[in-house]
Simulated scan of single mutants.
Amino acid sequence: MDQLNGRCDLHTHSQASDGMQSPAENVKLAKQKGLSALAITDHDTVAGVAEARQTGLEQGIDVVAGVEISTRAGGKDIHVLGYYVNIEDQLFLERLHGLREAREERNHRIIAKLQELGLAISWEEVIEGLGRPLEPDESIGRPHMADVLVSKGYAVDMRDAFDRYLAEGKPGFVSVPRVAPEDACQWIREAGGAAVIAHPGLYGNDELVRQIIEKSQPDGIEVFHSDHGPEEERRYAELAREFELIVTGGSDYHGVRQGVVFHGDLGSKTVAVDVLDQLRAAAKR
C-alpha cells in the first residue's frame, strides 16, 4: 500500500455533510490506502474535523481541517475549498451556520418542487434515510434526496436522480441566494486558512473561472479531480502557472451509494504532501 506514501487526498466528504462514512472511517480508509494525509472538506461545515483529527492521531495520518463553501457566480454554483481554517473561529462558524440555513431553505423548496411533480417524497423520509440522528452543524444535500428517489423507484441510481430531477436546469433544481466566491475566499483567509477554487472543470466555463480568480485572488486551484480528464488537468495546471496558484487535488470522495463510488474512490486523485507546506504558508500570510 505504500505506493501512495507521501501523497494526500485534499477533497473528501463525511457524514457531516453528504458523505456516506464517518470522518473517522475516512481517515481509516486513507490509512488502508497508504496515504500520508487527508483533508475533510464537508459542505458549509467543519463539524467532522475534530473526530477526523483524533483518528488521525491514532492512525498516523495528517488530517487537514477543511471546508467546501457553496457560492454563486455567473449563474453557476461555484465551490471554494478552505484549508487550515481555524475550526473554533466564532465568526467563521456563524458564517457557515448562515450558509447551512440557506441550504436548508433550498432543500425544503426542492422537496416541494418534487412533490409538485407528483413524487411522494418528504423531508422526514430524507432524514430517516440517514439511518441515524442528524447531528448539530451537519448539512443535508441533494445526494440525500437522491437516495430517497432511488429507494422509491423514481430513479435508477444517484446519477439518474440528478439527471432527471436534481441537477441544474432539471425540474427539481432550486437555487437560493449565495455568497460570491470572493466573499468565501475572504472568509477563509479571515479564519486563518488558504482558499482554493474547487473542480473548475465542472463549471463548463473557463472564462468564468478566470474572472473568479482575478476577482477572488484565491491561493490555489484544484487541478486534479475525479471529474477532470487529462485535458482539464493540463488547462488548469497552465492557469495555475499563469496566476501563480497552488496546484491542489483530491478525489471528492463521498462514499458508495447504490454500489457506485462518488465522485471517485478515496486516494484516486492525490497530490504530494509538500503541497501542504504551500497551503500552510499561504494560510499564514
Rank of each mutant, 00 (worst) to 15 (best):
I212H: 05
R142H: 04
G229L: 09
L10G: 05
G129W: 02
K33Q: 09
A16S: 04
D89T: 02
L130W: 01
H263M: 14
E238P: 04
P171A: 01
Q21H: 15
R234C: 07
G75I: 04
E128F: 04
T41S: 14
G267N: 03
F224M: 15
R132G: 01
E168D: 10
R234G: 08
N205H: 14
R285I: 13
V256E: 11
G6V: 01
L38D: 06
P23E: 15
V247M: 15
N5W: 08
Q278P: 01
K31I: 02
E244V: 13
A24H: 10
Y253D: 07
R103G: 15
V209E: 12
G264V: 09
E94F: 14
L208W: 14
I213G: 02
Q90F: 00
T248A: 08
K215Y: 12
Q3I: 14
A47L: 09
Q3E: 08
E214S: 07
Q217W: 07
A120F: 06
V27N: 03
G131E: 10
E116M: 05
E233H: 12
A167V: 00
R235E: 13
I221V: 15
A155P: 06
S268K: 09
F243I: 10
S139T: 03
V196C: 10
E233L: 07
G204A: 11
G48R: 01
L29Q: 12
A184S: 07
V49R: 06
E242P: 02
V63I: 11
D62V: 15
G204N: 07
R164I: 05
R109H: 15
L93P: 02
I197M: 13
H97M: 12
R210T: 15
V126D: 12
L93F: 09
Q59D: 05
G201H: 08
L117E: 02
E88P: 00
D9M: 03
R280H: 10
M158T: 10
K28Y: 10
Y203F: 11
W187Q: 04
D219C: 12
A65R: 02
G255I: 01
V174W: 13
H144E: 09
L29P: 00
E182S: 14
H79W: 00
E68K: 00
A30E: 00
E125C: 11
L35F: 02
Q32W: 09
L239W: 09
T248F: 11
I188V: 14
S216D: 05
R164G: 05
S36F: 06
Q3W: 12
A73E: 11
D206H: 06
G220T: 00
I188E: 14
R103K: 11
A16R: 01
V260I: 10
Q21P: 07
L134Y: 05
R95N: 14
T41M: 12
A161I: 12
G250V: 01
H225K: 13
V275S: 00
F224I: 15
S70I: 05
D277G: 03
